[in-house]
């Protein structure tokens, strides 16, 4: 991730506050009844969405600290985007989870205005966020694309023997 000493330092100092702030801001995209559930149930299986969100935040912040490649950070976002892509969120709403990281950083910076190094941190953060946004946007579109493919393939599977009879599918189809 190149030279990002200021950002690293800032994140290192504020990791837990940052996680919390960011987490809450993404939770706020759900109705309060739902957010409470996502927050309170810690089991990975009885609360898949909450767990995914929590894991993503951990991975991204820890990834930043470990100076991971942007692609790796983006990969950490993907499970959440995949969920949001079918939860009725618009693309903008879905990828805003990335923006919310930036906002959380800004909010923390504003709270610690005295340090004065805010603009440096943001300058280092901006290009990463931009790339993450693009990557997540791509994934959202991929997911929607995937849905149409799945629809098509499901139809083919449901009528497989008929299509086969009419020579409309390959004989050996990979399920």
């Amino acid at each position: 991730m190149g030279d990002s000493q200021k950002l690293l330092g800032f994140m290192g100092q504020n990791a837990s506050a940052l996680k919390k702030l960011w987490y809450e801001s993404v939770l706020a995209t759900y109705p309060p009844e739902t957010a409470q559930l996502l927050r309170s149930k810690k089991d990975q299986f009885s609360n898949p969405v909450g767990y995914t969100l929590k894991t993503m935040i951990e991975e991204v912040v820890e990834g930043f600290l470990a100076e991971a490649e942007v692609q790796e950070l983006a990969a950490a976002f993907h499970p959440l985007i995949r969920i949001k892509a079918v939860q009725g969120f618009s693309p903008a709403e879905a990828v805003s989870s990335v923006l919310k990281l930036k906002h959380a950083v800004r909010e923390l910076l504003a709270a610690k205005a005295s340090s004065g190094s805010g603009s440096d941190v943001l300058e280092e953060l901006d290009p990463v966020i931009d790339e993450l946004m693009c990557s997540c946007f791509n994934l959202y579109v991929d997911c929607r694309q995937k849905l149409s493919e799945i629809k098509e393939e499901e139809l083919k599977r449901n009528f497989y023997m008929l299509l086969k009879k009419a020579d409309l599918v390959e004989d050996k189809n990979t399920g």
Binding site: R39, S40, K41, K42, D43, Q44, F45, S46, Y51, K54, T55, E58
Partner: peptide
């Protein structure tokens, strides 16, 4: 359901 591992959160 609360028995398995996961991020520690508020209460059950």
């Amino acid at each position: 359901t609360d028995a398995t591992e996961g991020p520690r959160l508020l209460y059950t």
